[in-house]
């Protein structure tokens, strides 16, 4: 697995797309920091960008990689290598190269700006942790989609739908159900509902950092316990990890049974 990972990773970090992606973050970070001169504002804007963009890039890139390297995958399959090693290796190769673009792309402008001398360093670390989680999750989901769909057009459509659902539609439904049932106690429900969407979970991590003052204004005891103690952070990170582990397990399971 690590051999596959190694080669995929080195292949990908030399690809044009990795550079485009890296340059995008480099530029975004630089523009936000050096034109605005406001670290807090830059971090907030980046968080908003990351929770939307990273899932989109993760899914699309994952799907694209898989379809483009189909023949190569077949070559690998004919080698004396375990199947799961091939797919998990490919998955990790893609996900880690994306993470690296993100971390380096944002890291350079922030370090140049003098991040280490500022109080915002934890916000920034949180930003990178969230971005890494989302990359791992959505690349894994992309691999799941393609393992079930040999048809490229279907695969791409499903992945865009998945992103749209997680990023926008889910929250729309969530909001409507909260408003529809507002006469009932909803805090357990609303915390529960965020667990089923990794984008929401990442959002919660960010809220815990940026909007804790507003969150504590809410009266519900469950909310208070969730946001007011370390519990929220703990549960969110746990749920995000689960969101990585479950799709990866499914890749492992599915790839062993699949015909190529």
């Amino acid at each position: 697995m690590f051999k596959i990972l190694k080669y995929i990773f080195f292949d990908l970090i030399r690809s044009r797309w990795s550079y485009v992606y890296l340059l995008f973050y480099l530029l975004l970070g630089a523009v936000l920091l050096f034109l605005n001169n406001d670290l807090s504002k830059a971090v907030i804007t980046l968080m908003n960008v990351i929770i939307i963009l990273v899932p989109l890039i993760g899914t699309l890139f994952g799907v694209m990689y898989y379809y483009n390297s189909k023949e190569f995958t077949e070559l690998l399959l004919a080698q004396p290598i375990k199947r799961s090693s091939i797919f998990i290796g490919q998955y990790l190769g893609v996900a880690l190269s994306l993470c690296m673009s993100l971390i380096i792309g944002l890291g350079i402008p922030f370090v140049l700006y003098g991040l280490f001398q500022s109080n915002e360093i934890w916000d920034f670390v949180l930003l990178l942790v969230t971005g890494t989680f989302l990359t791992l999750i959505f690349t894994a989901l992309a691999f799941n989609i393609v393992l079930y769909n040999e048809n490229k057009i279907k695969g791409f459509s499903y992945s865009i739908l998945l992103w749209l659902f997680m990023a926008v539609i889910y929250d729309g439904l969530f909001l409507m159900s909260l408003i529809a049932f507002q006469s009932y106690p909803l805090d357990s429900f609303s915390i529960g509902a965020t667990m089923f969407n990794p984008i929401d979970l990442s959002r919660i991590l960010i809220l815990l950092k940026l909007d804790i003052s507003a969150l504590l204004g809410y009266t519900g005891a469950v909310f208070k316990k969730f946001f007011g103690t370390g519990l929220g952070l703990f549960i969110s990170i746990g749920a995000l990890s689960l969101w990585v582990v479950l799709p990866v397990l499914n890749i492992y399971r599915k790839c062993r049974k699949k015909d190529f």
Binding site: Y7, I8, F10, D11, L12, R14, S15, N68, S69, K70, E71, F72, E74, L75, A78, Q79, P80, I81
Partner: peptide, 18 residues
């Protein structure tokens, strides 16, 4: 067992950047 087999696939398409 695949160690005993050499296989030439029909369409050759390799990682583009290697």
């Amino acid at each position: 067992y695949r160690d005993q087999i050499d296989y030439l696939p029909q369409i050759a398409n390799f990682p583009a950047n290697l």
